[in-house]
């Protein structure tokens, strides 16, 4: 028993390094997407103290809109632009109808409101697009679907081109966001908001504009994640769960830390895959990916309550 837990998995890893690399690669692709979604959470949290539970449904909604538009006869790339438009309208509506009237309410109320948004979008999406599964328009968007084969250590490593594309686009988006946050006035205002509302106000950008913007960024992130994940798993309301996966990332990396979201996301993506393949499937009956990341984050937080990247807080009275 002990050997099954502490010895055999590692022996397997060493015995088949090509397979290990395959596992790590798959984990890395998921991890990049987790990091991306976590970034969406962090931006909204930093700028408005809202824990946005609707991030998951926004992924579904964006993917459904894209596929739905294309099914209605709109060319693929035009659909992408139109979907971005829809996400922008959503951001504006959310800010006007939900956020503005709820300014200054306790965190939990704002959090509940985002669950309200989630439900609303689920119902709305199902009425418009129907509840059945759809196929992502991968090829129509020009995303290659072949695979690249490597032979490290005399073994076999298969990288799907759509995964490479997804990882590449997600990485580009992350870099773009970092540049935006660090180099532009608007981006700096968003970052400043996390530290100090007064300071941010003095930059001269209205809070409302910032909120619309961060929700729109969250919408863009949702669309990219929706395309990437939809290409792997199809488009359905089950996609929503991918957003849940970003939550332990936030626990590990901190709700306000941009670098924490990125590092945490990659780490969790790879670790949960490793655990599932080498421990979960042989010992626990598999499907451990639903909870592994949460348990990992929980255990880490028990020993480091400030998270992996947070600073120790000195309590005062």
């Amino acid at each position: 028993m002990l050997s099954e837990i502490f010895v055999e998995p590692f022996a397997d890893m060493v015995a088949a390094p090509d397979f290990l690399m395959q596992v790590l690669w798959e984990g890395l692709v998921s991890g990049i997407l987790y990091a991306l979604i976590a970034l969406g959470f962090v931006l909204i949290y930093r700028s408005s103290r809202i824990f946005n539970f609707a991030q998951g449904i926004m992924v579904v909604f964006a993917a459904l809109t894209l596929v739905g538009l294309h099914e209605a006869g709109v060319p693929a790339w035009v659909s992408v632009v139109l979907t971005l438009g829809v996400m922008f309208v959503l951001a504006v509506v959310v800010e006007r109808v939900v956020l503005r009237p709820l300014v200054g309410q306790p965190d939990i109320i704002l959090f509940m409101a985002t669950i309200g948004i989630t439900l609303f979008l689920i119902g709305f999406g199902e009425i418009i697009f129907g509840g059945e599964n759809k196929v992502m328009i991968t090829q129509e968007l020009g995303i290659p679907t072949d695979s690249v084969v490597f032979e490290p250590f005399g073994g076999l490593l298969i990288l799907e081109q759509k995964d490479i594309t997804a990882a590449g686009i997600a990485a580009l988006l992350v870099i773009g966001l970092l540049l935006f946050l660090n180099k532009t006035r608007m981006g700096r205002a968003i970052r400043a908001l996390g530290d100090d509302h007064q300071a941010a106000m003095s930059v001269g950008i209205s809070l409302q504009t910032i909120w619309v913007l961060v929700w729109f960024i969250a919408g863009i992130i949702a669309l990219v994640t929706g395309i990437a994940w939809g290409a792997r798993a199809g488009v359905s309301f089950a996609l929503e769960v991918i957003a849940y996966k970003a939550l332990p990332v936030l626990m590990l990396g901190g709700l306000e830390s941009i670098s924490g979201a990125i590092v945490g996301g990659l780490m969790i993506g790879m670790l949960e895959k490793l655990f599932e393949i080498y421990w979960g499937q042989p010992l626990l009956g598999g499907n451990t990916e639903t909870w592994f990341a949460f348990m990992l984050a929980l255990v880490v937080l028990l020993f480091r309550p400030q998270g992996l990247f947070g600073e120790r807080i000195i309590e005062r009275v």
């Binding site: 979008l121 119902g123 009425i127």
Partner: peptide
């Protein structure tokens, strides 16, 4: 579902 979501808000 949609109405419940709206009502919550």
């Amino acid at each position: 579902v949609m109405i419940v979501g709206g009502l919550i808000i």
